[in-house]
Design a binder for these strands. Sequence first.
DNA 1: TTCCAGGCAATAC
DNA 2: GTATTGCATGGA
Length: 228
Amino acid sequence: MSDKNKLPLIYQLLLNRFGYQGWWPIRAEGEHNSNYHPKDYSFPKNDNELFEICVGAILTQNTSWKNVETALLSLRRHNAMSPSGIKRLPASKLAQIIHSSGYHNQKAKKLKAFVDFYLNNKGIITRESLLNLWGIGPETADSMLLYGYKVPIFVVDAYTRRIMGRIGFKENSYGDIQKLFMENLPADHKIFNEYHALLVELGKNICKSKPMCNYCPLKSICKYGNLR
DNA sequence: TTCCAGGCAATAC
DNA sequence: GTATTGCATGGA
């Protein structure tokens, strides 16, 4: 099997093992916490939910979602989970509120920069314009576009790179890996959504820095797994 | 104690 | 142009 033909197969194997993931975790009407909503691709349903996804995308940079969740709760408690709420706060105060997410001084500055942009560009958000902002790189921009704006663009993260590298794909840069997925799968935001979430699930639980290949649903097609 | 987490910008070479 | 370093909290 050629490498490219593996992409749909990997998706099926991951889906069979882990099931639908229901990303992006979001606090819906009447819910207290951010929750996953498997097989429901209607989120975000409004501007508040969209904004919350964008905030989460910035806060989760190189940080566990658990720490981000604490920071999101803190923002809500301080009445600051909105563009105006964040704009009104001094960066130092904002940093205190989100401290559990780590890098809180940097992330406070990133949130401020994003909010200014967001308020000045209602609804018109391009990848390029996001990348021009201080604090937003390719993964954060693509996460906002895919999970917030339902744009069919593939999100590449550290897990994706590790997993694809171990399986034996030669593509290594963000752009090359992204192209690999986008040129060999239907351009459907629901599929890109699940696929990325499933890769995270595999990377978190099995294809860790110390991989547990014996439990891996991809063992049969993985170069690294077959060496073990 | 050490390592790692749903990156990015600044700096060094 | 690529490699390294600083940013920081919290759980395993």
